[in-house]
Nucleic acid binder design. Structure first.
Length: 172
DNA sequence: TAGGCCATCTGGTCCT
DNA sequence: AGGACCAGATGGCCTA
């Protein structure tokens, strides 16, 4: 179990940091903020040879950076929500055994493949969607249904999926 | 203690 | 022009 409060704690720290920065008129002095910022400042001195054309003051830049950070946080939260939603629709995974992101993606991929194989087998390789596409206006060039998928591959995918589930359950 | 995973920050690039 | 997206860097937490 990962520390769930970490993000919030860090977020608070950062917000506080930003607050202090906003309070202090000395805009270029980021050294007091954190070791990370200190280090990054040092490293990026060369690269930070910013063109003088930037219209913003250092205070404005800071403000815009903070706004960007917040947007990025929200974006990542949405991404994580999507990951969570994905975790919840992958069957046979115990709730307390939270899948990592990479596990979620890999498991989902194999699950989709196995379902696709099963569907193809059950429909003898003739899916309505496929027929529509072939006779209709716009054939879809991409997608799992267009991958040749025989019995062996189907079994292999199912086996792969089952093995992953087993290993993820044993790993707890 | 090393390694895995994660959240966050950051600057660059793409897109609208 | 400004927001979205991306990838790299960093540091914290947890586990073997």
């Amino acid at each position: 179990m990962k520390a769930k409060s970490k993000g919030a704690k860090r977020r608070c720290a950062v917000a506080e940091d930003a607050f202090h920065q906003a309070q202090t008129p000395d805009g270029d002095d980021l050294l007091k903020c954190s070791r990370r910022k200190e280090k990054r400042n040092k490293e990026s001195h060369k690269a930070m040879a910013r063109p003088a054309k930037l219209p913003w003051s250092s205070k404005d830049r800071r403000l815009r950076r903070l706004e960007s950070n917040e947007r990025e946080r929200q974006r990542m939260h949405k991404l994580n929500n999507a990951f969570q939603a994905l975790r919840e629709v992958i069957p046979h995974v115990r709730a307390e055994n939270k899948l990592s992101k990479i596990e979620t993606l890999t498991l989902a991929k194999n699950y989709i493949k196995s379902l696709t194989s099963t569907i193809l087998r059950m429909s003898s390789g003739h899916l309505p969607a496929l027929e529509e596409a072939s006779s209709g206006s716009k054939p879809k060039p991409h997608g799992p249904f267009h991958q040749p998928c025989g019995e062996e591959e189907s079994a292999e995918q199912l086996h792969k999926y089952a093995a992953q589930i087993r290993s993820s359950q044993q790993g707890s």
